[in-house]
Design a protein around this nucleic acid. Structure first.
Length: 450
DNA sequence: TTTTGAGTTGTTCGA
DNA sequence: GTCGAACAACTCAAA
């Protein structure tokens, strides 16, 4: 009787503990991916395309034996288990609010399959080095602040990468991987798949990781590892990365720990998938009506008149990805300069990001907005001009995504409205005055806090 | 239980 | 141009 390996966001064969256990139960393993409408529907075209491409890569690695089925997992998996005569399904644990509920339902449905004893769902491991819910303070509670979480997480440690297994892959009828959805013209998606992920990590480790701490904040240098899309889909596991890292790579390890921290926060407070972690900030005065709609659209399309903001938003549209420093700048701008709710920004990000991850996206937005765990103090408001000059000193990042600014002299690149020769054709005046909106935000934060 | 110390990512102002 | 202090208290962790 073959074991079923249910792939979800762990689309790899290396360092995959669930796969190891499946292969230990039976050397024949039937690999399946379920296209769940509940996950397909809210995903934007860029992330769906990346998922489909990753699935095609996995299918190749499996010699064309990946079984793709459309439908709800609680219907599809019992059906497939019955067809294959399987008595066990293996998968990595999912710790998100939807995933937990879905997996509980699947476990129940499998239990009712009329094998002699039903079919068992084995949840093995997680997409994290340390499973959410397992780093706890002295009172058995989840940590509310990052630094304490980091120390406890690091001291707790994590397992070595799982050993590699080579099961006999069993085939079954497959609906096949869908064709890519229609994509915006000119969209440049990153190459994906496990082999790409492992090579990209190896190359980054050998060449650029040493400069990570100093250069990661510079969007013009493009010095980050670009592992986010691979971590999102599990084509590489954080354990694999951590096994390569030493004390010299503290800065990079800390970024992985942020991902784990926010997964833990979401696991401990699942309602924060939608709601403010600190509800008090719901009481801020937000823009409404046509003003709000116009501002949101200008922000989303990269037409705010602040080059570093617009470049970031256009990078997102062009690549399905944005440099982390710029994500903070555009998020601060949305909340504190345009006075829109972080939920509007988070939704736009999730529609366009290829690495869009609920826990990281949601809680990083809340951090910027001041409503999250360990949130930025309210007086910390990014100045888009200062940030641009500091982190894109030569303007190379801005010029890459805003060709209309090509002729603007370097000293005015981050504030082109100051250029005595005027703004270039097609580039807008700033839609708001930073100094004015900053003061308004400070006053309003003080009002709701006091 | 109480106390103490620490806290991702900033900006502005004045020396 | 560079530097340090103020911003405004407050929460959480840990001793």
């Amino acid at each position: 009787m073959p074991a079923l390996m249910w792939f979800r966001r762990d689309l790899r064969l290396h360092d995959n503990p669930a796969l190891v256990e499946a292969a230990e139960l039976d050397h024949r393993v039937l690999p399946v991916f379920v296209l769940d409408p509940a996950l397909v529907r809210p995903s934007g075209a860029p992330r769906l395309a990346v998922l489909y491409r990753t699935l095609r890569e996995l299918d190749q690695q499996l010699g064309g034996r990946l079984v793709v089925r459309h439908g709800t997992p609680r219907r599809v998996l019992p059906e497939l288990a019955r067809e294959a005569g399987a008595e066990a399904v293996f998968c990595a644990g999912d710790f998100g609010p939807y995933g937990r509920r879905r997996d509980d339902e699947v476990a129940e449905a499998l239990d009712r399959v009329a094998e002699p004893h039903g079919v068992t769902l084995h949840r093995v491991g997680s997409p994290y080095a340390v499973p959410p819910g397992s780093v706890r303070n002295a009172n058995g509670q989840n940590y509310q602040v990052y630094s304490a979480f980091y120390r406890a997480w690091r001291d707790r440690g994590w397992p070595e990468p799982a050993r590699s297994v080579r099961p006999d892959w069993v085939a079954a009828d497959s609906d096949g991987v869908p064709d890519d959805p229609e994509l915006p013209a000119g969209l440049r998606l990153p190459p994906v798949g496990e082999r790409v992920a492992r090579k990209a990590w190896r190359d980054y480790f050998d060449s650029d990781l040493a400069g990570y701490a100093d250069r990661r904040d510079r969007p013009d240098l493009d010095a980050t590892s670009r592992m986010s899309v691979h971590l999102k889909w599990g084509t590489i596991h954080p354990r694999t990365l951590l096994a390569d890292l030493t004390a010299r790579h503290e800065a990079y390890r800390k970024e992985l720990a942020w991902r784990e921290f926010y997964a833990d926060v979401l696991y401990s407070r699942p309602e924060t998938a939608r709601e403010y972690y600190q509800p008090m900030l719901r009481g801020l005065r937000y823009a409404t009506g046509q003003t709000a709609a116009d501002r949101l659209r200008a922000w989303a399309e990269g037409r705010t008149g602040y080059p570093i903001v617009d470049a970031g938003m256009r990078q997102l549209l062009a690549e399905g990805w944005m440099h982390n420093r710029v994500r903070m700048i555009v998020a601060s701008f949305l909340v504190k300069n345009l006075h829109l709710e972080w939920t509007d920004g988070a939704r736009h990000f999730m529609r366009h990001l290829v690495d869009g991850d609920l826990a990281s996206n949601n809680h990083n937005w809340q951090w910027v907005a001041g409503s999250g765990t360990d949130a930025a103090p309210f007086f910390r408001i990014f100045n888009p001009v200062t940030q641009g000059k500091k982190f894109d000193p030569d303007g190379n990042y801005v010029r890459r995504y805003l060709p209309e600014l090509a002729e603007v002299p370097k000293r005015y690149l981050h504030e082109p409205w100051q250029n005595p020769d005027g703004l270039p054709d097609g580039y807008p005046e700033p839609i708001v005055d930073h100094a004015v909106e900053r003061d308004a935000s400070l006053a309003d934060y003080q009002r709701v806090k006091g």
